[in-house]
């Protein structure tokens, strides 16, 4: 079995006020896979990603990241392997300046300062945000915050990337650049998004979530072209297949 993978076994989850967000979900994500998680609003895409990094813990079932169980005691180990971009990137950033925020993770992993700076530099180059280096994070635009949030996790050099709506707020050029970054990252990534064109461009597997369960799981060429399936889940064909 390959080294990088996530196993999700019969996982159920509900928030206190909202029992049953996810119901008996089972799947395995393998190395080199790029999985698009799609589904209507409120179907539990973000919740699924949160479960994978242990921000929420399943009420039933279990999750393993590279054989490590996602339980409270193991969270630091699990989180070292995963980079997670929040849906709301505003609340993901907390340091004073952009470069300090990007340096946060490498510093925590105890890298020497020159290496920290090298990581920061590379992450900024890849996301094209060198010009924001010394800016206060409170003075960034919505899309800039997203780019910085993406840079902060690239600087961690994770095995696995989870992204929640990464293209929201990006202009077309930065969106294209993000697609390029995603395509260059070929360990394992899970991307929750409504941007089905981006999913089509970056993913080699699509999981459709509906009513707490996996409604479809397969290659994008099959699921993202299935008009009927998408429409009964409040989704539409990617733009390229419309017309």
């Amino acid at each position: 079995m390959s080294h990088i993978h996530i196993d999700i076994e019969h996982v159920s989850f509900g928030y206190e006020t909202n029992q049953n967000v996810l119901n008996d979900i089972t799947f395995t994500a393998h190395e080199n896979e790029s999985i698009g998680i799609i589904g209507a609003n409120g179907m539990g895409k973000s919740t699924l990603l949160k479960l994978l990094v242990g921000l929420e813990l399943p009420t039933k079932g279990s999750i393993y990241v590279e054989e490590i169980p996602v339980i409270r005691e193991m969270l630091p180990k699990v989180r070292e392997k995963i980079g997670y971009v929040f849906q709301d990137s505003e609340s993901q950033l907390f340091m004073n300046t952009v470069k300090e925020d990007i340096a946060f993770a490498p510093r925590n992993y105890g890298l020497p300062e020159e290496e920290v700076q090298a990581h920061v530099q590379r992450a900024m180059e890849r996301t094209h945000i060198q010009h924001l280096k010394d800016k206060s994070i409170y003075k960034l635009s919505g899309g800039e915050k997203k780019q910085v949030a993406i840079a902060t996790i690239l600087a961690m050099t994770p095995d696995i990337i989870l992204m929640d709506e990464p293209t929201v707020g990006l202009d077309p050029q930065n969106r294209r650049n993000l697609i390029k970054i995603l395509n260059e990252f070929n360990h394992l990534k899970l991307i929750a998004s409504h941007d089905l064109d981006m999913v089509y461009d970056t993913c080699n597997r699509v999981i459709l979530i509906a009513d707490g369960q996996i409604a479809a799981d397969g290659i994008p060429q099959k699921i993202l072209t299935d008009k009927e399936l998408l429409e009964c889940n409040h989704l539409e064909l990617p733009l390229r297949f419309q017309a």
Binding site: L75, S91, F94, R107
Partner: peptide
Amino acid sequence: DNVYASMTLRGYHGEFCYAR
């Protein structure tokens, strides 16, 4: 809460690492 989550996701274990 979110900020705290984001800190722990990036390797924070209770001791803040300041830029040396």
